[in-house]
Amino acid sequence: MALSRRALLSLLAAGLVRPASVQAGADPSVDRSAVPSFATTWQTPEGRFQAGLVSQTGDSLQVHDLPARGHGMASDPTGSRVAVFARRPGDFAVVFDGVTGRLLADIFAAPGRHFYGHGCFAADGTLLYATENDYEGERGVIGVYDATERFRRIGEFSSHGIGPHEICRHPDGRTLVVANGGILTHPAAPRAKLNLAEMAPSVAFVAASDGRLLHAVAPPADLHRLSLRHLDVTLDGSVVVVAQWEGNPLDQPPLVGLTRLGAPLTLVSAPQGAQQRMKNYCGSVAVSADGRSFAVTSPRGGVATLWRYDGRFLASSELRDVCAVDAMPGGFLLTSGEGWLARLHQAGLQPIARHGRRFDNHLLRLSS
Score class of each variant (00 low, 15 high):
residue 101 G to W: 06
residue 349 L to G: 00
residue 322 V to C: 15
residue 109 A to P: 09
residue 206 V to F: 01
residue 340 W to S: 14
residue 335 T to K: 13
residue 313 F to D: 13
residue 93 A to D: 02
residue 169 R to C: 10
residue 51 A to W: 00
residue 171 P to S: 03
residue 48 R to M: 10
residue 80 S to N: 14
residue 146 D to E: 04
residue 49 F to D: 15
residue 284 S to H: 14
residue 269 S to T: 10
residue 312 R to K: 14
residue 152 R to A: 12
residue 246 E to K: 11
residue 196 L to W: 01
residue 89 P to R: 09
residue 146 D to W: 12
residue 367 S to I: 08
residue 192 A to E: 06
residue 324 A to L: 10
residue 95 V to C: 12
residue 226 L to N: 07
residue 315 A to F: 05
residue 72 G to Y: 07
residue 78 T to Y: 09
residue 266 T to Q: 15
residue 213 L to D: 09
residue 234 T to E: 10
residue 162 I to F: 00
residue 256 V to D: 10
residue 26 A to Q: 11
residue 113 R to G: 06
residue 227 S to P: 09
residue 105 A to D: 03
residue 243 A to I: 12
residue 231 L to C: 00
residue 13 A to L: 11
residue 95 V to E: 09
residue 170 H to Q: 05
residue 4 S to K: 08
residue 200 A to T: 13
residue 266 T to C: 07
residue 292 R to I: 06
residue 222 D to I: 11
residue 184 L to V: 10
residue 74 A to F: 02
residue 151 F to Q: 07
residue 183 I to K: 05
residue 315 A to G: 01
residue 132 E to R: 07
residue 249 P to G: 08
residue 52 G to I: 00
residue 44 T to S: 13
residue 1 M to Y: 13
residue 143 G to S: 02
residue 169 R to K: 12
residue 195 N to Q: 04
residue 145 Y to E: 07
residue 363 L to H: 13
residue 156 E to R: 01
residue 83 A to K: 02
residue 316 S to T: 09
residue 76 D to V: 02
residue 18 R to P: 07
residue 226 L to G: 12
residue 187 P to F: 03
residue 257 G to W: 06
residue 269 S to F: 04
residue 40 T to Y: 00
residue 321 D to Q: 15
residue 124 D to W: 10
residue 334 L to S: 08
residue 34 A to W: 04
residue 316 S to I: 04
residue 329 P to M: 04
residue 142 I to P: 03
residue 323 C to F: 02
residue 252 Q to P: 03
residue 196 L to P: 01
residue 345 H to C: 11
residue 255 L to N: 03
residue 135 Y to E: 01
residue 195 N to D: 13
residue 264 P to E: 08
residue 205 F to D: 02
residue 360 D to M: 07
residue 360 D to T: 06
residue 86 A to C: 04
residue 307 W to P: 10
residue 116 Y to R: 02
residue 186 H to Q: 03
residue 354 R to V: 14
residue 19 P to V: 01
residue 194 L to S: 12
residue 53 L to P: 00
residue 24 A to Y: 06
residue 351 P to H: 09
residue 310 D to T: 08
residue 214 L to E: 05
residue 21 S to T: 15
residue 68 A to W: 09
residue 56 Q to D: 13
residue 81 R to T: 00
residue 268 V to W: 06
residue 211 G to K: 05
residue 162 I to G: 08
residue 299 P to S: 05
residue 34 A to F: 08
residue 138 E to N: 13
residue 335 T to M: 01
residue 106 D to P: 03
residue 86 A to T: 11
residue 177 V to D: 02
residue 228 L to R: 09
residue 18 R to T: 10
residue 14 A to N: 13
residue 19 P to N: 07
residue 114 H to C: 14
residue 144 V to P: 05
residue 270 A to V: 00
residue 193 K to I: 07
residue 182 G to H: 04
residue 156 E to C: 04
residue 368 S to I: 15
residue 275 Q to A: 15
residue 330 G to W: 01
residue 203 V to R: 00
residue 196 L to F: 01
residue 228 L to Y: 01
residue 110 A to K: 10
